[in-house]
Design a protein around this nucleic acid. Structure first.
Lengths: 232, 232
DNA sequence: CGTGGCCTTGAATGTATTCAACGGGGGTGG
DNA sequence: CCACCCCCGTTGAATACATTCAAGGCCACG
């Protein structure tokens, strides 16, 4: 692990309150690895041997059943996955694979549980992280159950535009195939949903998205902080 | 609060490791209340003033957007809701209303946060509880995204039968209207889904459900612990 | 230069929602 | 005690929405 990296990790909310000796315990058995794109890091159903912390690149979390599969979330630096399985010493509920070249810290689950049981600051930090994750899934489920696919796409575009600076144009951070799955539709249906947003001033050329009429788009999307604000 | 109740609560995993003085702090400002059915306990978007613990009855968690609303979950004794909002001092993402006459403990959020910051055992217990909640929502989302409505109903019936003892027959614990919303469909569609399960040996008369051919039903439902096992 | 995967489009199919209507049960008030 | 009414659940028909299947263009990559 590079020295600057350790310092940076040390400042992450999850590890900031850790007592020094516990930080050492945790990172003595840790290792950092660079993965090429499309590497399966985690298989759904496996035991959670490592807590993963992504520090570069991006990772997709998927779930499958009966020969179908769906994208549940994408993870960007710097954040952890999948914490809940590690803490509960339970099987992973989702699979994980790299989308791009990624740099990832692997912390042995046993060490995480040991330090968690011993270090109150760490336990509190985990609570905050888990509460965040929980609320993110709840929001995602509200999005799925309360909105049509067109509305989900419209809100997705507004969220991403805001996340990337609110310039009114941005590039899709993943291929449309995966975006479709993430939004709960087929690629064909996403194509059609994109076309239908042209009426609301949204231009999409390849991965480039441009919002020409924010008012119109917001009128359709009706964004709501209790669904769309990640910090809420 | 009745004395037997306090003892019982003391034994809940969430409070068991709490140091005695902190238990007192937490429950000094607490009060227990009996609510009739159909009482709105929590409004989506409000600040989380109290952590709720249900000890009798049942509570429905709903979410709404743009004049639509959906049932996200139902809560049964003895468990808490909504912990994440309390910890993060954030707005509720869901509303809560009693379904039946219910007995509920209200713990001031500020006290919960105070004790949380001070008592490591409590922090650890909250982590376990939150991890459980998180995994429950992830499972629910997998159910929604990976299964058709017929498959969701089939698995729901198998889960409930198992939960109620696996006798092959049980009564639906809520009205069909709410069940439909919980399963992500309209009441009309639930009616049709129920009818369609007759081919798989499922008899439904009013609230009474009978499984006449478990093999056939399981063949359709393909239950999976990573979606359907609540303890997994 | 070929090839495979992604994206798009069209047509057909399937699934779910909406709208409308009706029967029945529970509760209320006369 | 009964009549009434409201709401739930069901059913049918029409519609809307989404998926599947098939085909073709395009780009990236070997």
């Amino acid at each position: 692990m590079r020295h600057g990296e350790i310092d940076e990790i040390r400042t992450l909310p999850l590890f900031a309150e850790l007592r020094p000796e516990n930080f050492d315990t945790l990172f003595r058995g840790a290792y950092v690895q660079n993965f090429p794109p499309q590497v399966q890091l985690i298989h759904e159903g496996d035991r959670a041997d490592f807590l993963h912390v992504i520090i570069e690149g991006s990772v997709e979390l998927t779930a499958s059943w009966n020969n179908r599969d769906t994208t549940m979330a994408t993870v960007a630096p710097i954040s952890t996955f999948i914490l809940a399985a590690t803490i509960k010493d339970s099987p992973y509920l989702m699979s994980a694979r790299t989308l791009e070249r990624s740099r990832i810290i692997l912390l042995p689950s046993q060490d995480v549980r040991t330090v968690f049981a011993e270090d109150a600051g760490f336990a509190r930090a985990i609570v905050v992280e888990l509460a965040q994750c929980y609320r993110a899934v709840v929001k995602s489920q509200k999005d799925l159950k309360l909105r049509t696919s067109q509305e989900r796409l419209a809100n997705y575009i507004l969220r991403k535009d805001h996340q990337f600076g609110g310039h009114g144009h941005f590039d899709l951070p993943m291929e449309k195939k995966r975006l479709a799955s993430y939004l709960g539709m087929t690629p064909e249906n996403l194509s059609r949903a994109i076309k239908s947003l042209a009426d609301f001033g949204v231009d999409v050329n390849g991965a480039q998205v441009r919002i020409n009429n924010r008012k119109a788009l917001e009128g359709l999307a009706k964004p709501n902080p209790l669904i769309d604000d990640p910090r809420c």
